[in-house]
Amino acid sequence: MIEVRDLQKSYGDLIAVDRISFRGKAGSIFGLLGPNGAGKSTCISCLSGLLKPTAGSVRVGGFDMSTEAIKAKSSLGIVPQELAIYEDLSARDNLAFWGAAYGLKGDKLQQRVGHVLNRIGLADRASDLPKTYSGGMKRRLNFGCGLVHEPAILLLDEPTVGVDPQSREHLFELVREEKAKGTCVLYTTHYMEEAEKLCDELAIIDHGKIIATGTLEALRAEFGGNDIIQLSGSFDQPKVEQAVTELHGEVLALATDTLMIAIRDGARSLPSVLQSISATGAEIHHARLSEPNLESLFLKLTGKDLRA
């Protein structure tokens, strides 16, 4: 449903998106995970026809975005990062307008507006102006405007930014419902938990490049079955690196006060790790053992924290 090939977007010397390729399928959620400024929104903008790619191609619903833009756009629903709603129009009028923008009219339009109002939980406030809504309600309306016309492909650009936990769960439900209906969902986020919870396939993006892609299981396999041990305290870096190597582990992150290593059979290895690290003169305050996750994968791949 979405096919991106060697997509590049440059602004002068700055390459915002650097020859990335991926595919999104019907009835699945494809996640683009990366820190702020990684190029996720630029990528979404190219996919939705808001930006013209410098190179590469984008096909949406079988149509090339650069040569058959109107047809390609017809199958798209967009939920931008900002609240792209009219605060001086009621929720009902917002949905009706964006539905009409995609060609809905008459009873069909009214039916869809009513249906979406129910789904986003705003039926009882449908006639109120969004400026009287909470942040979460506005987010839900923003979401509703993107799916009122029943798009085959839904582009969600960090849809949960600034959303309270309850509204966030509600939005997750909506995304899963779209997936169950057969919609192809492209979801960008910098929250690993969201990506892990929702996405069937993922691409990790940094500095405009995809640095890893695949299902969550496939990405975890990058660690070769290793577990993650995180320590906090004070560390002598050269000595600690030497000790970890002797334990057949891999240093993922090392600073004067933190250490993260990947090591096989973490639960059994933990006592020897603590002993070896302490033997270097390090002072250990806290230790945590976990399975590999996207955060540790990102750290392994980029050497930096995704939350940074």
Binding site: S45, S48, G49, L50, K73, L76, I78, P80, Q81, E82, L83, A84, I85, Y86, E87, W98, A101, C145
Partner: peptide, 9 residues
């Protein structure tokens, strides 16, 4: 507000 972006899309 981003509604212009929605329009263009």
């Amino acid at each position: 507000k981003g509604t212009l972006g929605r329009w263009v899309a």
